[in-house]
Design a protein around this nucleic acid. Structure first.
Lengths: 160, 160
DNA sequence: GTAATTCCTCAAGTGAACTTTAGGTCAAGC
DNA sequence: GCTTGACCTAAAGTTCACTTGAGGAATTAC
């Protein structure tokens, strides 16, 4: 920690990257990476050091939480782009994004449950080799989870 | 397809990698990769071409299904290592692995539901910035999902 | 018998989400 | 006033799960 034994109150000069790291549990290198990726935009001191506001702290906490829920950074960035740039986001702003993610999450859980039930009926009964097996043919259906292992979310609308 | 317009019956010589690819929906390159990773072990013809048995087809189908459920290859390999090497796996063998994955899946769904509910209570109410927020402090708890973004499964028992 | 496929290996590339390293600047504590 | 630690940038490395490409051999189709 840079500014003493406990992180100083945010005012007047904002938090350093080290302070933010300990507060959010993110690595310093991860925070720099998130800035590169446009997930957060700290201002700089005269000498070029990053300084973070309370709103930045919230953004980064949200990134961490959404990540732990399995959302890719691209999705998180997209959602956060709807946050206001001119004023600090309000409770309502965050609530809107939260509801968006909540809906995605519900869908993902439902999909997972459906597949789990097929797993019971299908692998459990040994029919894995049959061409009529529901799980086996899952790939043919529109409702299948993303078809690449890298896209667990199933929310990627681009090509592939 | 190598052996005619429709894939020939498995006997006497097994299926080629191309046949397996069309049957499982996997790419040829993916199947080669899975062999490298020890997930399947086809035999070879005199000239070095891969030939797959019915048991191999089942293994690869299982890999595809488990992948779509979000399990990493390392986990799938670990589970399949308990399959017998000397005889083709029985219905009971697959059933045991299936139950194992089903349990993991249930746990994952439960975790996701718990986090979703916290998302409601926590981000929804705007408390994201408070140090007492449950989601915010999720990382401190043993029950948290894997702490790296690459490990959505939370089933990785190694270091980190 | 030849052309078109399919197959082979090995090496390198891809994308996501970072970390690590190298080489330096700046600020805090004594 | 100097050392120590935190900070900076830029580039390269890491892991997972593959794909792509190069260069060549074997098989199949006509």
């Amino acid at each position: 920690m840079a500014h003493g034994t406990s992180p100083r109150p945010l005012r007047p000069s904002g938090l350093s990257i080290g302070d933010i790291a300990t507060r959010t549990g993110l690595a310093v290198s991860a925070i720099r990476y998130y800035e590169e990726e446009g997930l957060v935009a700290p201002y700089r001191t005269a000498s070029g050091q990053r300084r973070f506001t309370r709103a930045d702290l919230r953004r980064l906490s949200f990134v961490r939480i959404a990540q732990s829920l399995g959302f890719p950074l691209s999705r998180i960035r997209a959602a956060m782009q709807s946050l206001p740039a001119d004023r600090p986001p309000s409770k309502a702003d965050w609530g809107r994004i939260s509801r968006e993610f909540r809906a995605d999450l519900d869908a993902r859980i439902a999909q997972l449950e459906a597949l789990r039930d097929k797993l019971d009926g299908c692998i459990g009964c040994g029919c894995l080799s049959l061409d009529s097996c529901a799980l086996y043919n899952e790939r043919d259906k529109a409702a299948a989870l993303g078809d690449g292992p890298r896209y667990l979310m199933g929310d990627r609308s681009e090509d592939i």
